[in-house]
């Protein structure tokens, strides 16, 4: 296996004449956290959908688990765990049944399955486990999705807004969990709008806009290259949105 757990090479997705993802390239090393940032409609969800194998790209490829491919095969999916948006749950299963279903799909060993109860206890989810996922709050759904993604102990984690809906205690806990996973060599991709979280956790940042990468690199280097004081400023500059300040002043002029 090469240096990277995942290499995305000029990945492109077109829906008719609309290009949702345009020649996006980046890589995730073992033991690193990469932040994928972008405004709504930047192509983050489409990119993640291709990475998890929902549909193939129009062009480009990815190297996953040491194998170059256009479409992720079922065998390759053992290499990663995916935490989707909190709305994306199998509503008609209870939390416990969902984990059992995951157990069967991944063919988890008894040792791996035993961790399910420990994860539920860690995330304060034991009492809710027998309820239908449909009745869970956003945060509770996120926790079950996180457990499901971790149970087969993947080398790579793909997380879509992992902190949304979580309370401060859980956010702190999940952050610690992600850091510990990084220490153990797990590669993590976080797709989010939360710049503060990215600044705090990520070793590498990819700014997406209108389907393409507008800037990428280590947070410190990005700050230096844009002459920005923080990641938010760098993000706005990278996307060419500094004029927002003038627009804000204009609308607030008479206040």
């Amino acid at each position: 296996m090469g240096e990277y757990l995942l290499e995305v090479k000029r990945l492109t997705k077109r829906f008719g004449t609309f290009t949702a993802v345009n020649e996006v390239s980046f890589a995730i090393r073992a033991g690193s956290i990469v932040g994928l940032l972008g405004p709504n409609g930047a192509g983050k969800t489409t990119l993640l959908s291709m990475l998890v194998g929902l549909f193939p790209p129009t062009a480009g490829s990815m190297v996953l688990d040491g194998e170059e491919t256009q479409r992720v095969t079922p065998q390759m999916k053992y290499a990663f765990g995916f935490v989707p948006d909190s709305q994306e749950v199998i509503a008609h299963l209870t939390g416990w049944e969902y984990l059992q279903f995951i157990r069967r799909i991944y063919g988890l060993s008894p040792e791996q399955w035993r961790l399910a109860n420990d994860y539920l206890a860690l995330l304060h989810m034991e009492s809710k486990a027998q309820d239908l996922l449909e009745t869970y709050s956003h945060g509770q759904r996120k926790k079950v999705q996180l457990i499901a993604a971790l149970l087969h102990q993947p080398k790579l984690l793909l997380l879509d807004e992992p902190f949304s809906g979580l309370d401060p205690e859980m956010i702190a806990l999940v952050k610690r969990l992600l850091r510990k996973l990084r220490e153990r060599g797990v590669g993590i991709l976080i797709s989010t709008h939360d710049l503060l979280m990215v600044a705090e956790l990520c070793d590498h940042v990819v700014f997406l806009n209108q389907g393409g990468v507008v800037a990428a690199g280590e947070p410190e280097k990005l700050l230096a290259s844009y002459g920005a004081a923080n990641l938010e400023e760098a993000f706005l500059k990278a996307l060419g949105l500094e004029e927002q300040e003038e627009a804000l002043e204009r609308v607030l002029a008479n206040f």
């Binding site: 959908s49 194998g53 929902l54 990663f80 994306e88 749950v89 199998i90 509503a91 991944y106």
Partner: peptide, 16 residues
């Protein structure tokens, strides 16, 4: 339609 919201989750697993 009942599973519309689950397909991306299911597609990410080895279950075809």
């Amino acid at each position: 339609g009942r599973d519309t919201r689950s397909y991306r989750v299911l597609a990410s697993t080895p279950l075809e």
